[in-house]
Amino acid sequence: MSRFLMCALVMMLVTYLVRAIPFTVFRRKVRNRFFRSFLYYVPYAVLTAMTLPAALYATGSMAVAAVGLLAAAALAYRGKGLVVVSLAACAAAGLATCMIHLLG
């Protein structure tokens, strides 16, 4: 087998096992109060940690990214859905990029 296929196989196996083993083995409902609340908070904590500060560096300019993220936050606060909020982030950042090009 070529080196590439070996590497691809290693990546696939490690990634799959890390995902599937705890999900498959850990089936009982957690009764411990602390752990239950902990698991309740995890998704929000994970998504936030992935967004900040990484998202600020997702585009060439921090200002552009900030405009996109703020637009998304404003619409999410008003209860808009996933698609609308995501598209708004791109649209606002796109507009900000155009503005910068026009003014600069």
Partner: peptide, 17 residues
């Protein structure tokens, strides 16, 4: 680059509400 913000927009749509 601008398109790559879509994914973060999605995170925000879950966390903010």
């Amino acid at each position: 680059e601008v398109m790559s913000l879509a994914i973060y927009g999605m995170f925000i749509a879950i966390v903010v509400p």
